[in-house]
Simulated scan of single mutants.
Amino acid sequence: MTSVTDLREVVDVVIGVDTHVHTHSAAAVDARTGGVLDQITVDATPDGYAQLTEFADEHATLRAWAIEGTGSFGAGLTRHLRTRDELVIELDRPVRTKRRNGAKSDPLDAIRAAREALSRTKLGGPRDGGDQAAERHSLSMLLTVRRSAVDAASDARRQLFSLVIAAPEPVRERFRGLKASAMPAVARNLRTRASWDVETRTAVTMLRTLARRIQAFTEEAAEHERAILAIVRSWRPDLLAQHGVGPIVAATVLCAWSHPGRVRSEAAFAMLAGVAPIPANSGQVTTRYRLNRRGDRQLNRALHTVALSRCRHDQRTRDYVARRTTQGKTPREIKRCLKRYIARDLYRLLQAGSTT
């Protein structure tokens, strides 16, 4: 995939696919002229995937598939095609303003997907590949559900704190002087009294409910983290040996990188992570860059976590921060530089480890 720079050199037809929950729309586009040969809409089911394959067989043997949403709505189709050794190209969902005259329909999006793949000089494959596809899918699911549990526990903590602040005095005095982190433990042991009015009794009941919810979600998140750690240790334990890289960071990096060949270079990995500075030069100004706010934000967050950890605990990083500070760099600028270097090092580690 990484050696292909022009699809027209290797295929006769590109099948663009616009994926949705219940249906997929496809368009066969001539690789030489960009003309539309045929179109079809099928159900997003195994029978529908078989129809798409038959549709492609009618037009060309040498073909490529340009699919939007290979990790979501198009995941089933992508797996079907990969088992048949088809050439699959991953495309991002289109930015609304890039659609010509605001035109929007499933057939038009399928045609646009095929033509966009033809216009690209650098092509990327879907993450549903490599020898460790099962591990990557498992990590992706675990990360998603763990993140949901962590967010739910955080929401419950905030709600508990707010209820304590507004609670009647008999309840509030039990929490006076406590930090927010200690409040759930106290709330779990609250008991109602018959002498209290309905507001006070309700406050106690709700605080106890929230405290138990926090405990349940926290235990669930810890269970998922243990499962994540077990998979990472069996797949790439070398990641865990890096400063600041724990199981969650390692899993996030592995899910983004996926397998050898998906990300073509360390610069592409930095762009994927949103840590590659974007040139904003004009005229004689050649040193201006914009902050990159695109890319995989979970991967960006993981690199930020590593940078913060190394700033606190890694002496080499602390020396680097001190040197850059004397050069006039702000803490934010230094962290951005660090994240770019961390992305480079992790990419090289991943690539080197995958060949052993």
Rank of each mutant, 00 (worst) to 15 (best):
S181A: 14
A302K: 02
K339Y: 00
R112C: 01
V145R: 12
T355G: 09
R136H: 12
R233N: 15
F269P: 03
D30V: 12
C337W: 02
S265Y: 08
Q327W: 06
A256E: 03
R288N: 13
T326Q: 11
T53N: 10
G74A: 03
R158W: 06
C337I: 12
R84H: 14
A222W: 06
D128E: 10
N101H: 14
K104N: 12
A149N: 09
A352C: 10
E199V: 08
P46F: 08
R112H: 11
A156I: 04
E68P: 00
T286K: 15
A26F: 00
R93M: 05
T45R: 12
S354R: 03
H243A: 14
E169D: 06
R301P: 05
A268Y: 01
R147L: 11
L308V: 15
R290M: 11
G48R: 02
L81S: 03
T5Y: 08
R174S: 10
V306S: 02
R84Q: 15
V4T: 15
M1A: 14
H224F: 06
D6V: 09
A103I: 04
Q315F: 05
I248C: 14
D319A: 12
E223T: 10
E333M: 12
L142S: 10
R297W: 07
G35E: 15
V10I: 14
G124P: 00
L240Q: 02
E199M: 07
R236A: 10
S181F: 08
T61Y: 02
Q51Y: 02
D109N: 03
D30E: 10
L52P: 00
L81G: 01
P184N: 04
I278S: 09
R84G: 06
A149K: 07
R158G: 15
D314Y: 08
I231M: 05
W196C: 09
R297Q: 15
T317Q: 12
S154G: 15
A114H: 01
A280Q: 15
G125Q: 04
S72Q: 09
G69S: 11
L210P: 07
T209I: 13
R157Y: 07
R288F: 06
V249A: 07
L240V: 04
T209N: 12
G71M: 02
D85A: 14
F161N: 06
T356L: 10
R112L: 08
D128F: 02
R188L: 08
T144Q: 13
T70M: 04
S195M: 11
W235I: 00
E199N: 13
P260C: 04
L254I: 06
V285Y: 13
T325S: 14
T205K: 11
R115S: 05
A227C: 12
D92A: 04
D38H: 11
T218Y: 02
H304S: 14
Q215G: 13
R293Q: 13
L350Q: 01
P107C: 08
L139Y: 01
A276G: 02
A211S: 08
R310D: 09
R236I: 08
R32E: 15
